[in-house]
Design a protein around this nucleic acid. Sequence first.
DNA 1: GTCTATAGGAGGATAGAC
DNA 2: GTCTATCCTCCTATAGAC
Lengths: 214, 214
Amino acid sequence: MKDKSAERIPAGERRESILAAASLVFGERGYFGATTDQIARAAGISQPYVVRMFGSKENLFLEVLDRAVGKLIEAFRSVLAESRDTDEPDDDLHVRIGFAYVNLIEDRGILLSLMQAFSMGGDPVVGRKAREGFLTIYRLLRDEAGFDAERIRDFLAHGMLLNTVLGLRMPDEYLTDDAARELLQSTFGTKLQMVLDLAALEAAGESRAVGAEA
Amino acid sequence: MKDKSAERIPAGERRESILAAASLVFGERGYFGATTDQIARAAGISQPYVVRMFGSKENLFLEVLDRAVGKLIEAFRSVLAESRDTDEPDDDLHVRIGFAYVNLIEDRGILLSLMQAFSMGGDPVVGRKAREGFLTIYRLLRDEAGFDAERIRDFLAHGMLLNTVLGLRMPDEYLTDDAARELLQSTFGTKLQMVLDLAALEAAGESRAVGAEA
DNA sequence: GTCTATAGGAGGATAGAC
DNA sequence: GTCTATCCTCCTATAGAC
């Protein structure tokens, strides 16, 4: 089952798959908690190759962060573009952007690795970039979406709760705890089923993806 | 200046000071990022003594978590008790609880170490306890404060944004970035000055408290 | 483009003296 | 109650072969 003699794959593609794996693992374990070896396994290559390709773990994380912010921006912008075509009432906008945010959960790792970065403000390098990313989103919401300060605050607040609930793996408690059930319902609304399904999938696949250290 | 030959201090007091130091350092660097040695330095004792007193780093973190949740509950309950004495309109309640939450920032480390715990849902031991803590707060808000699901959600959401903004060290950007300024204003409202003052104090003291590794 | 081997350094935990 | 010394594991990063 283990393909020891590696297939040669173009550097570009390899980069992508490492970034995807890293996003997952960093999201799961945090920057310090994640090891380059776990990332390597998840990507199906050797640990030194990961380091070689990105120079350092820190660099890799910075790229993951960039990607995550980029995907967020992209998703938000596409909603904004849509809304310029149709002329639905502007009030829908924050709902639709909110949906775009929730939908990013499908791209596993993005939201969680973002949240990890958001807790690293104290780090001189990562912290700076994380603040930058957060403020970029703020400006997008303000300047491109035209939200006022309160709307931005409320939007970001609910986004952070969403991240927290996911980071806590609260969906795992859905069946066993009434408070968790309520919380999940009010947090995810109509997207709840999607979230639960994803959590179930993960619970099955996680051991293989990340924790195959036996 | 360095008192090498340690003063004998009752175990109870020593425990407290280690927990206080640990709360700070864990809040600053996260569970994996923090080292028992940094905590020991911050508490003014040797690294093995920290481990000896709590058995393991994980155990120490779990106690820090307990403390943080305990302080939160205590703060919320005292607001609730107050509101049963006076008979002000119930609408004020979530504002006053919100203030109680923001005021916990003064007890440095509490909010940040809580947030660190909230990002560790994947950990079998810490994750379980973190979810438990979060749901305890949820139930307090629901059963003791009488909030409905939406109010709880909104309250928690704004709390999480507050944590995120603090974790990002956004106050450091207050003078240099207009978006940061706006965000801080709408997030902290009348408490903004307090937050900025605390951030300034920290910026001065941080190098001594945590990062004296030269 | 990818691996194996390994250097080099932290960091958590233990032993044992005072 | 507290320290010093130290073990041992784990991890990032480098070297060099294929």
